[in-house]
Design a protein around this nucleic acid. Structure first.
Lengths: 341, 341
DNA sequence: TAATTTAAGGTTATCGGTAACATTATTTCA
DNA sequence: TGAAATAATGTTACCGATAACCTTAAATTA
């Protein structure tokens, strides 16, 4: 590997001069600058980021941790974060925790070991608390995305989950649905809790009774085993006429399970959910959804993070909480109750 | 930041002893080991990856560069790469080039500067050659995914693009289509070239004439400006009855443009493409596609990469080329010609 | 013209680890 | 019982960069 010393030797200058040329610091004559540049090109020199960061005590590296890299919500969010990072001159790397607290912890270790300047995290859930506290203890600035973690103060960008759930239920109710079920993510995830709350409030406002057996709390991540959903569907009696899904992955799994049992959507069952299905929902608009502004989650989150990084030292700045609105897109996955077979 | 020296001082041993405890090397008495461990926990010590890599001359870090993080093909591929990396004990980080050679070059610089042990790359295209050669020159092992780059020998995992294109055209032909158009990625991308070749061969085999105006070569990446597709549609006369899209993104854009012009799919135009739309195509199976084994691209690619890394030093090992089959999934986006309005 | 400034560059120490080579008790064995 | 082996730890140098300080010659200024 070519080092600064190889360049220095070949150019007949000291290593420090090479360093100055690389970083455009200090005073260097045009002649030496040109010579050093030529030697660097000749030898294909690439600065060693680690050596540099070691002495500078900063890496210019930021991380984005998401929980599901195959979910369009998170990948669109990633684009937003990426664009903002570029704007501020940071490099951004991605990690994927798969909704798995252990994997997430591994990434946090990598991040700490890499001495990243900051992190954007969509936490796997409340049990993420310990490793987020570790980040805090090591003074790594971070911003939470999409989910809060009780007991941890921080900047955060959230969607209006409660309002979103209310809108979905209201919409179903307006189509005459009175038996509305909810399949939700783990209660250890803040957004899932708020969606449940919004669901219950909306039921009440629409004079609908809350029936515990109509609620299934499972995992937001995709899984091959659908038996939990199957037994839930069997348990409910009478079957609901509509299902609210806590996110797009759950909606897909519910619909798949319904199809397996010969129940057609929306003819026999209406389904709505949080989060859109990416650009692909445009070709054959099917699911009625709360389309969260995924790109904005990433973009705004990155702005908050960069602010934190640049304010480092100043203490006691209040934590910022951005709540993005929940907009509903009505498509074909809901039919009016009177049309249900 | 807590260092090995802080631990050493507090535990009353030398830094080297701490290092030995961390890495489980050398001989350490149980007593000191326990003491050092306790101090590390007390101080929340995290090893500095950069310092370590600097002296070890290896980072245990691998990178995956993809060209479109919102494309389910690449995110599923990423999952495969991730699982395989974990199996082999490497850390994996992701980068997203957005089909943009410049961005890709930036990532390559980051990778070189980070001194990653290896890279998995889905190259943006033939113009990626210079920076891939830079990787080679710096002896960073890499494996290409999904696309080859002429003039560059390397391990590579490909899909059978030619065969896939043939299958799509054959399928359309079997439904009576005789005017079949192709919207494809840039001719500077190997997979796009092969898809065009397969398309032309299949036309010939089905006794269909090749009409240049029926082929549009554009970009594989999503874009907001659809005017190029619009003017292409206007140019073709008579309109084709079916369109083959070089990938899922193009299919989505074509269908969107068709809808804008009041042309319905599949009632008035059949559309097929390469690459599935992720799990979401299951809820409302619409597009007939060549479903490439995205997960396998990542998993096998990672295996090849790790082999290369571990063989480092041994020269002249032949390059490996894995070609994954192209399987067609027939869904609803094609109708028989006689039913076209 | 002597005293300062400035331009251009060099030296040394350091970032946080680890390899390689000591060192010192303590065992083990001939 | 003395020599050799081993266990447990310490010292030193180095990985590749940069900050802080130092040096020298040329250019300015009083």
């Amino acid at each position: 590997m070519v080092t600064i010393y190889d360049i220095a030797a070949k150019a007949g200058v000291s290593a420090m001069t090479v360093s100055r040329v690389i970083n455009n610091t200090g005073k260097i004559s045009e002649k030496t600058r040109a010579k050093v540049r030529r030697v660097m090109e000749d030898l294909n020199y690439v600065p060693n980021h680690m050596a540099r960061s070691l002495v500078l005590q900063q890496t210019n590296l930021l991380f984005l941790l998401i929980t599901d890299i195959t979910n369009p919500f998170y990948t669109t969010l990633a684009r937003g974060a990426e664009d903002a990072a570029k704007k501020y001159g940071y490099r951004l790397l991605f990690g994927n925790s798969d909704e798995n607290v252990e994997k997430e912890k591994d990434y946090v270790d990598t991040i700490l070991a890499t001495r990243a300047d900051g992190v954007l995290v969509a936490p796997a859930g409340d049990p993420s608390l310990p490793h987020l506290e570790t980040l805090r203890k090591h003074q790594v600035p971070f911003v939470l995305l999409d989910r809060e973690v009780p007991g941890l103060d921080s900047d955060v960008v959230l969607g209006d989950s409660k309002e979103g759930a209310r809108k979905l239920v209201d919409h179903l109710s307006s189509q005459g649905h009175r038996r509305i079920a909810l399949i939700n993510g783990s209660p250890y995830i803040s957004s899932a809790r708020l969606r449940l709350e919004g669901y219950r409030e909306a039921l009440k406002l629409n004079d609908l009774a809350y029936d515990e057996s109509y609620v299934l709390e499972t995992a937001f991540e995709p899984r091959s085993d659908l038996s939990e959903i199957e037994s839930w569907l069997e348990r409910m009696s009478p079957l609901p006429t509509a299902i609210v899904a806590g996110n797009n992955v759950l909606a897909v799994e519910v619909i798949r399970t319904l199809h397996d049992r010969g129940i057609r959507v929306p003819e026999q069952m209406s389904v709505v959910c949080f989060d859109d299905l990416g650009p692909y929902s445009e070709i054959d608009p099917f699911l009625t959804v709360i389309a969260q502004q995924a790109y904005q989650f990433g973009y705004l989150g990155m702005q908050l993070l960069v602010e934190r990084i640049q304010e480092r030292g100043e203490t006691g700045l209040p934590w910022k909480k951005v709540v993005l609105p929940a907009d509903m897109i009505v498509r074909r996955s809901v039919s009016a109750v009177e049309n249900i077979l």
